[in-house]
Write a protein that binds this DNA or RNA. Structure first.
Lengths: 201, 201, 201, 201
DNA sequence: AATGAATGAGCGTTCATTCAT
DNA sequence: CATGAATGAACGCTCATTCAT
């Protein structure tokens, strides 16, 4: 056909389309904010028609939720791998690795994190559900305690405390452009040691 | 009437009207969320006409910002007073008081805090500015360090860490309805002691 | 269907929708005035949803401008055709034809003309631009002068004078319901003859 | 009283206040357009409270109408005086004076004229009423015809034609910044002579 | 699976007008 | 005469969502 030059492939595996849309959404959310991003902008950004959006997501909140899930699971993956690199029994090293991966993983995607977690709360009734990063850290703290590496009265509370403390510090550091990565990591590792009752480095 | 000398006739003092609107907004934000609350709802809630809103605020973001300021200054007041009750030199007691006031002050208004700080980021360019609660705690940590009460390498980072850690814990506790106030306070006081290098109670 | 080859499926061709909206707008502008006509009224009149308006026009001013353009080009068309019917060289006849077509073309759409040109000035910075009817008449006067048919010092000014004089007279005649079409035409033809220095009929 | 320094005279003759308001309105209409001028702006401009406006005018349309009347009567005054300066019987001179005063009177207040007559049509049902400038010129043409100074079949139509022709030319000249006052006057005087059947100057 | 014209509820905002002082 | 806080109807405009193709 003569006009075939301008024709894009009409069809793509659903998963790929979904990803296109999520990526376009992430980009636009970052640039303009969630509330200020329209579905139309997202579809234009993903190079599909408006209606196609609704083939893959039920609403704007739905993409936001999907973005959240993706973010968290990538973040946790990173932490998991960093910890796994430490030898069995090196509990102090594991905590240090947790802090380091937590800081860097956040720094590398902080803007997206903020957008996706703080800028806009989905209307949906269902609450966040468990924060899997905290759940994971709780496990680590329990294991270390069991192994006699440290003493933690309430691993869940401590994990929550560490998680939010770390994120708060990194977030504030970003906001103020005071950003010496190494220093930040070192300080937060100390904070983690203290929090579980380990002596400073 | 006594006040007729200094008061220009107004159906209601501007400040009172402003407060009515802020209270209505807070109530509705809590109930339905910020994004889902319309200005009209706010004015109905404050029992004024739609146009009256614009006599006191420029936009929805504007009320949100005002609510924020009010919240923070009340919160900080509470913390300040709690600390001031401790005798000069009782540094450990001051930290404990900080943690306790922080927890209770938050618990008593947590939902509003969440709404006002997390649910919706005003589009306006100007960033949060310094968190005055953190600034205040930084001062306390510095003073205690100078007095030899504890050792803290970077008071600012530690203050930030404590602030966000505490809030995160309280927030999560709320979300899960696991809520023994006293236990929460005790745990967080321990966390604070550890964070500044004090021995557990 | 025959047209299915070149036509993308549209509930209605965009041009037709645009015309529907313009016609509804013209009708309402005539009936109630421009300022008193809301966009919603226009869309109701065109039997489309409110949002559809914005698929075709950017604002009320925008429809007004479109209406203007349409009006002028139809008006000029009419004049052009009337003049073209006169034989080459019949300059007096051409002027008479101009006057007649000018009067009748105006009478047949005077109300719309008034609305579209006088009642409301679009806020937009860009000025009317050249009045193409005047530009056209200027050409006719120049040609006749070159051909020695009459003497006109400044064709542009004379054309402007004739155009506005004629319109003013017709407009006033309409306002007062004193309306003998033939008499009006005759009088204005005389005025045109005099204006270019031709002897009366 | 202590605060008497900041107190303006609370009261002014009604006529003066009315004038203040009209002047403020004229200034703002010129600057921003009629539709874009709010009553509040007018009252601020006239240094009175919002409510005071309604003590003197019934609506925005009402000020517009008042400005119209004021404009026309000043314009006509000017023409009348210019004509009166010519000796009894100098009909040609009177026509020339009419044209000159018409042009200059318009040029000196063209922007206001446009605003007040063209930009915005009052919603009110009552039509313009007779244009007193045309009525006056009609009288002049009749008198001259009776005196045998010229021949005009229909003085009213001719007057209307001249009035609108002149205004159209001046208006267009203004719009294009082609503005040699003397030349404009001369051309329009010629047009007037021709229109009444007088030989060119 | 994909399209995009059409929808229409709903929003923020303005502003002429009123009226208690 | 003068005030200005309060009103609330009305408007322009946006945009998530639908659905015929």
């Amino acid at each position: 056909m003569l006009w075939s030059v301008n024709t894009r492939p009409r069809t793509k595996p659903a998963e790929e389309r979904r990803d296109d849309l999520m990526n376009a959404a992430a980009r636009l959310f970052l640039k303009n904010g969630v509330a200020a991003t329209s579905i139309e902008q997202i579809t234009v950004g993903a190079d599909v028609a408006k209606g196609t959006f609704y083939l893959h997501f039920a609403s704007k909140d739905d993409v936001l939720l999907a973005l959240r899930e993706r973010f968290v699971s990538q973040y946790l993956d990173r932490i998991r791998k960093a910890i796994a690199r430490r030898p069995e029994g090196d509990w102090r090293g594991k905590v240090a690795a947790w802090a380091k991966a937590g800081v860097t993983g956040y720094l590398d995607a902080a803007a997206l994190h903020d957008i996706v977690f703080h800028e806009y709360q989905p209307q949906s009734g269902k609450k966040h559900g468990d924060n899997i990063v905290i759940v994971h850290l709780t496990g680590l703290l329990e294991d270390g305690a069991k192994a006699g590496a440290w003493s933690v009265h309430d691993p869940r509370i401590t994990a929550t405390f560490l998680f939010h403390g770390l994120h708060g510090v990194v977030h504030d550091a970003l906001a103020e452009k005071r950003l010496v990565r190494r220093r930040l990591i070192a300080q937060l590792q100390q904070a983690c040691f203290r929090a579980v009752g380990l002596p400073p480095g």
